[in-house]
Lab assay of single mutants.
Amino acid sequence: GNAVQEIMIPASKAGLVIGKGGETIKQLQERAGVKMVMIQDGPQNTGADKPLRITGDPYKVQQAKEMVLELIRD
């Protein structure tokens, strides 16, 4: 079955996860074999953390989460 996890991405790092024209998030999805969606909560909310929703095989979702956390670590 499918697992769904959401991680909060600091607004300052959201661009890093998505990448230029969505390149990075696309590569992450391909590498991890999961679906990732950045939940954009309207323009008034630009400074707030953005939830990144990861959907897929539970094991792969976990892997994907680690990859993203690695990416946004300072």
Rank of each mutant, 00 (worst) to 15 (best):
G1Q: 03
G1S: 05
G1K: 10
G1V: 15
G1T: 14
G1A: 08
N2A: 15
N2M: 15
A3Y: 15
A3Q: 15
A3E: 15
A3I: 15
V4K: 14
V4R: 09
V4S: 04
Q5A: 13
Q5I: 14
Q5D: 14
Q5C: 13
Q5Y: 13
Q5W: 14
Q5R: 14
Q5P: 01
Q5H: 06
E6M: 08
E6W: 07
E6N: 05
I7L: 11
I7Q: 02
I7Y: 01
I7F: 04
I7P: 00
I7D: 00
I7M: 15
M8W: 04
M8T: 06
I9C: 02
I9F: 01
I9V: 14
P10M: 01
P10C: 01
A11G: 06
A11C: 10
A11N: 14
A11F: 05
S12Q: 08
S12V: 09
S12E: 12
S12D: 13
K13T: 04
K13V: 07
K13N: 05
A14W: 10
A14H: 15
G15N: 14
G15E: 15
G15L: 11
L16F: 13
L16A: 11
V17H: 01
V17R: 01
V17L: 13
V17G: 01
I18D: 05
I18P: 03
I18G: 05
G19V: 01
K20P: 11
K20M: 06
K20Y: 11
K20C: 05
K20E: 12
G21Y: 08
G21T: 09
G21L: 06
G21P: 02
G22K: 05
G22C: 06
G22P: 03
G22Y: 03
G22S: 06
E23Q: 12
E23P: 02
E23M: 10
E23L: 09
T24N: 08
T24M: 13
T24A: 08
I25L: 13
I25C: 03
K26Y: 10
K26N: 07
K26S: 07
Q27M: 13
Q27S: 12
Q27N: 12
Q27A: 09
L28S: 01
L28C: 02
L28A: 02
L28V: 05
Q29K: 04
Q29H: 02
Q29C: 04
E30F: 06
E30I: 11
E30Y: 06
E30T: 08
E30P: 00
E30C: 13
R31E: 13
R31T: 10
A32M: 12
A32H: 14
A32P: 01
A32I: 10
G33K: 07
G33D: 07
G33A: 04
G33E: 07
G33H: 06
V34P: 00
V34D: 01
V34S: 01
K35L: 06
K35N: 14
K35V: 05
M36F: 04
M36Q: 01
M36Y: 01
M36V: 03
V37N: 08
V37G: 04
V37M: 08
V37K: 15
M38F: 15
M38P: 03
M38L: 15
M38H: 05
M38A: 04
M38D: 02
I39M: 14
I39L: 13
I39D: 06
Q40S: 10
Q40N: 07
Q40A: 09
Q40K: 11
Q40V: 09
Q40I: 05
D41E: 14
D41I: 06
D41S: 10
D41T: 09
D41W: 04
G42I: 09
G42L: 05
G42E: 13
G42W: 03
P43G: 15
P43V: 12
P43C: 10
Q44D: 13
Q44G: 13
Q44H: 15
N45Q: 10
N45R: 12
N45S: 09
N45C: 12
T46Y: 06
T46S: 10
G47D: 10
G47M: 10
G47T: 12
A48V: 12
A48I: 13
A48E: 14
A48R: 12
A48M: 14
A48K: 13
D49T: 10
D49N: 10
D49S: 08
K50T: 12
K50R: 13
K50V: 13
K50M: 10
P51F: 08
P51S: 11
L52Q: 00
L52T: 00
L52D: 01
L52G: 00
L52N: 01
L52K: 00
R53K: 11
R53N: 03
R53S: 05
R53E: 06
R53L: 08
I54G: 00
I54K: 00
T55K: 04
T55V: 10
T55S: 09
G56L: 00
G56R: 00
D57I: 10
D57Y: 04
D57G: 04
P58K: 12
P58N: 05
P58A: 12
P58T: 13
Y59K: 15
Y59Q: 14
Y59W: 14
Y59C: 13
Y59L: 14
K60C: 13
K60A: 10
K60E: 04
K60S: 10
V61P: 01
V61F: 01
V61Q: 02
V61R: 01
V61N: 01
Q62I: 07
Q62P: 03
Q62V: 10
Q62N: 07
Q63Y: 11
Q63D: 06
Q63R: 11
Q63F: 06
A64L: 00
A64H: 00
A64V: 03
A64I: 02
A64P: 01
A64T: 03
A64K: 01
K65Q: 10
K65P: 01
K65W: 02
K65S: 06
E66Q: 08
E66H: 04
E66R: 07
M67S: 08
M67I: 05
M67N: 08
M67T: 06
M67L: 09
V68P: 02
V68H: 02
V68Y: 01
L69N: 14
L69K: 11
L69S: 12
L69F: 08
E70P: 03
E70G: 10
E70Q: 08
E70M: 05
L71G: 03
L71C: 10
L71P: 02
L71D: 02
L71F: 08
I72E: 03
I72T: 08
I72V: 14
I72Y: 03
R73Y: 09
R73A: 15
D74I: 05
D74P: 12
D74V: 05
D74E: 09
